[in-house]
């Protein structure tokens, strides 16, 4: 058991609208942590603060600390591009680069950061696609367009793309929201496999999904962290009435 990410007094705003209020929590390494909560509760904003992507939206602001392996991502002088290199992200809608081939989609991040000496780009691409459980399906058409794939395949391509730059943490923002049940299952299996090597944080509005894949669950409501703990406990013995109401489907 070791803490990978420590979030301390995290506040976030869009303009004057405060969307996160004093969030404090610790995320375990090599575990899947699910963030659940009703729409608009700030769960997407929360994980976008973990890779400093929140601040690219005009008017968006963050205050607080996110410690990753003891380093504060919001300390002065920290380069956000370096943060995003270490902390990968997969988005709600599959967003492969349409002008690039499948190969190039995976390779592009490596091209940005430069290839380590002695490593072949082809190997990285193959390894990333294998980790994303996509290799078998695309190995014979690596040079066709990434958007020729199905939605579920595109999302796994985006996972492969994120893995190719060798991040330590993988953030997923409702990665199955636009996918069919079979593709969703594939991605869930994949997450369980990936946590051996990565720390995973997944936002989901699907509570069954949170229950199936995650080790820890955080429940956010109106920008506040209501409850956080091991997933079985949150789902069987919630301490807060609001958590209970939410997971039993009484609102949200």
């Amino acid at each position: 058991m070791s803490v990978k990410i420590k979030v301390e007094n995290l506040n976030a705003w869009y303009g004057r609208n405060q969307v996160l209020k004093d969030i404090n929590l610790e995320i375990e390494a090599n575990k899947v942590t699910a963030i659940i909560g009703p729409s608009g509760c700030g769960k997407s904003t929360f994980i976008r603060c973990l890779n400093r992507l929140h601040e690219v939206v005009p008017g968006a602001r963050v205050r607080g600390h996110v410690w990753v392996d003891g380093q504060d991502l919001y300390a002065p002088g920290v380069d956000p591009t370096e943060v995003r290199h270490r902390i990968g992200m997969v988005f709600q809608k599959p967003n492969p680069f349409p002008t690039m081939s499948i190969f190039e989609n995976v390779a592009v991040g490596v091209r940005i950061h430069g290839l380590k000496p002695g490593v072949k780009l082809e190997e990285i691409v193959e390894r990333s696609l294998r980790m994303a459980a996509l290799w078998e399906e695309v190995s014979d058409r690596l040079y066709t367009s990434g958007v020729s794939l199905s939605g579920g395949q595109q999302q796994r391509l985006c996972i492969a793309r994120a893995l190719a730059v060798e991040p330590e943490v993988l953030l997923l923002d409702e990665p199955c929201a636009s996918l069919d049940p079979i593709s969703t299952l594939k991605i869930e299996d994949l997450l369980v496999e990936l946590k051996k090597n990565y720390t995973i944080v997944i936002v989901t509005h699907n509570m069954q999904q949170a229950a199936r894949v995650s080790d820890y669950t955080a429940f956010l409501l109106d920008g506040e962290l209501v409850e956080y703990g091991p997933t079985p406990e949150i789902f069987t013995r919630p301490r807060d009435k609001r958590t209970e109401d939410y997971i039993t489907g009484r609102f949200g």
């Binding site: 992507l53 690219v56 591009t81 995003r84 988005f91 967003n95 991040g109 940005i112």
Partner: peptide
Amino acid sequence: PQSQREAMLALGAT
């Protein structure tokens, strides 16, 4: 789409 920019930024691109 903004999602294209964010996809690239999230890889650590400038």
